[in-house]
Amino acid sequence: MSILPAASRFLDREARLLERRLFAGDRAGVVRALRAHQNDDGGFGHGLEPDKRCPASLPIDAEVAFQALATVGAAGEDMVRAACDYLTTVTVDGAVPLASPVIEDYPRAAHWTDWTYVPGVNPTAGLAGLLHRLGVDHPWRAEASRYCWDVIESGELPDEAHALSEVLVFLAHVPDRERALAKAPAVIDQLSAHESFHPMPRPGEYGLTPLQIAPTADSPWRRFFTDEQIGAHLDHLAAGQQEDGGWAVTWEPPSEASRLEWRGMVTVQAVDTLRSYRRL
């Protein structure tokens, strides 16, 4: 099976419009697809992150939108600034939560519970980092960046793998490179020691891997992983393509529609990573 044609057929057959536009590298098309998920308050919702089927604006959906824009290099400044205006309304002491109790009125994955209502570096650091990557300035970005630096400088980072990976997104794109590169090794060491981090492939198990921390060959964090680790995960990633051309997910989404949406997302991500590491 040839990876690219099979992935393309899977996306044409099963994925939502956003992932098809991402796969095509269509900047304008990505912006148009995201507009359907943007609410009047400026935030994003309507299941843009597919694990909860909630129409209301949530910070996690803003992060998915920012990541999509960054992937194709489309700033989408007006929509991003509107999303920052929304984030300002849900910020507590510089940080935002992933979600809010409004998700309880809609189908959601089992892990989306009250822990997602607590403001923290997940997703604040990822949002701020993506805003730096997009080059979109806004008062919320400055406030969130100050919060992130305060947490990082305190040396009291949360012991949760996804939160640590969000901090690395921030450190990858914040302009103060000397300061960021000085702090990154401790964050990566803490993440690498976490039970949810997989230095080598663990087939069928959910967790973070070196390819999620360094999804492209030019990532500033690539140097923290050995060629053996990266190579093993690339082999595992390439072998993970399913018979239908897409990649599977290792958790239980709330519906079959959600599962297909996630499969479209991880398929685009898998192809982008394999292409960057010259495996296609």
Score class of each variant (00 low, 15 high):
5 P>F: 03
10 F>L: 06
15 A>M: 04
17 L>S: 13
17 L>Y: 03
18 L>D: 02
19 E>M: 13
20 R>E: 05
25 G>S: 05
25 G>F: 03
29 G>I: 04
29 G>T: 05
35 R>N: 13
38 Q>C: 08
40 D>M: 12
44 F>H: 15
46 H>M: 03
48 L>W: 06
52 K>A: 11
58 L>G: 02
59 P>Q: 08
66 F>H: 00
67 Q>K: 10
68 A>W: 11
71 T>N: 10
72 V>I: 09
87 L>R: 00
88 T>Y: 14
90 V>D: 07
91 T>V: 08
93 D>S: 14
98 L>G: 08
100 S>N: 09
106 Y>N: 00
107 P>E: 14
110 A>C: 04
115 W>N: 05
115 W>K: 14
116 T>Q: 12
118 V>R: 15
119 P>G: 10
122 N>T: 11
124 T>S: 11
129 G>C: 10
133 R>M: 02
133 R>T: 02
136 V>W: 00
147 Y>C: 12
147 Y>R: 09
152 I>D: 03
159 D>M: 10
160 E>W: 13
170 F>E: 01
176 D>V: 03
176 D>I: 02
182 A>V: 03
183 K>A: 15
186 A>H: 05
196 S>R: 15
206 Y>C: 06
208 L>W: 11
210 P>M: 00
215 P>Y: 02
219 S>A: 06
226 T>Q: 01
236 H>N: 13
237 L>C: 06
242 Q>H: 09
252 E>K: 07
257 A>G: 09
262 W>G: 00
270 A>Q: 02
275 R>A: 15
